[in-house]
């Protein structure tokens, strides 16, 4: 339920002209302020307040404006915000202005008076109003600290059919959690459903994963291959990683280098992946937020680059070594 159900708001057009007028006014005030060498803190504060008001105004009109327009206005405000921030930054020494809207409960914060500490949580509220307890989950499924191993579901501690999973600190490993991989072992296993994935600190590894029913969060991978389906994909601080992805939103990378994206290989695809529309995602590089293409990743089109032989069977020793070297990006690869 939105407060904007005031049906009288057919004022999209009025809004636009007035909004733009206010925006221009603010813009010129910012320009005026930045032309002075060292603007005093008060005007900057006033600009911030005007911007906050304008933003509030826009927020108030949410739902009454065409969403495209709304978006544009938000972008314009962001632009203004950046200019004000630039002003603030250029205005060293920093203003000590603290917003004086309310008698801050924190003015006495530094001194641990009985008053400030007792207000941290009003005890009656705490007990009376305690959140209804949700089932306390204590177990957590993880695959961690291995090197030179071929790892399958059997290497996981006992777990329910559905769980979130974290994979960390692996070196020279192949992790195969595809449904087919478990049938070799205990026969009638129900396929593992992963509800969220965290991966951290892997080098020279191959991850063959099914369709994760949630998000994937990945940190610190080097020379790896990741095959996975998920709702959201975020990768941080990684380099030389080939990602084979089936996804319904836009994958993002940050502080990454030499990443190659392809779609989930048909040869490995579980039915849940095949049912989805053929992946056409566009990667967002949060380390490169500008119009030029990011130098940190490339999109590969499936055909010429598909790995023809996925290491689906358990191998060890030199064979494992060879299987890994064959498909992970090489340290000296030039791209």
């Amino acid at each position: 339920m939105s407060t904007s159900d005031d049906t009288t708001w057919s004022f999209s057009r009025t809004f636009t002209s007035q909004f733009q007028a206010s925006r221009y006014a603010l813009e010129s005030r910012i320009a005026a302020a930045s032309s002075k060498l060292s603007p005093s803190p008060e005007p900057i504060q006033e600009l911030s307040i005007s911007l906050a008001n304008l933003t509030k105004t826009l927020a108030g009109a949410t739902g009454s404006l065409p969403s495209y327009d709304q978006k544009q206005y938000e972008l314009q405000l962001k632009e203004l915000e950046r200019s004000i921030e630039a002003l603030r930054v250029s205005n060293v020494p920093k203003s000590k202005f603290a917003f004086k809207r309310r008698p801050a409960a924190s003015t006495n914060a530094e001194s641990p008076t009985s008053e400030s500490s007792s207000t941290a949580i009003p005890p009656p509220l705490q007990t009376k109003n305690a959140p209804p307890s949700l089932p306390a989950a204590s177990t957590h499924l993880s695959l961690s600290s291995h090197s030179h191993r071929y790892l399958t579901r059997e290497d996981l501690p006992s777990h329910p059919a559905q769980s979130d999973l974290s994979i960390s600190d692996l070196d020279h490993c192949i992790v195969n959690l595809l449904p087919s991989a478990s049938s070799s072992g205990s026969g009638t296993d129900t396929p593992l459903i992963i509800s969220a994935l965290h991966a951290r600190n892997l080098s020279d590894c191959v991850l063959l994963l099914p369709d994760v029913d949630g998000s994937a969060l990945i940190h610190d991978l080097e020379r790896c291959v990741v095959v996975l389906g998920c709702h959201q994909f975020r990768m941080h601080a990684s380099s030389k990683v080939d990602v084979y992805l089936s996804i319904t939103s836009n994958p993002i990378i940050e502080h990454c280098k030499e990443i190659r994206f392809s779609s989930y290989p048909a040869a490995l695809a579980p039915s849940s992946v095949l049912e989805k529309d053929p992946a056409s995602f566009s990667v967002q590089d949060f380390s490169h937020i500008r119009a030029t293409p990011s130098p940190n990743y490339v999109m590969k089109d499936g055909t010429d680059t598909d790995v023809c032989e996925w290491p689906l069977a358990t191998v060890s020793g030199e064979e494992l070594e060879r299987a890994i070297v064959r498909i992970v990006p090489h340290p000296s690869d030039q791209r």
């Binding site: 939105s2 739902g63 938000e74 319904t248 939103s249 967002q284």
Partner: peptide
Amino acid sequence: GEDITGISPTLGFNIKTFA
């Protein structure tokens, strides 16, 4: 009360107003 599937990571910010 919106659909929560297919949300992409937030680049910037969103504003929601409700009662």
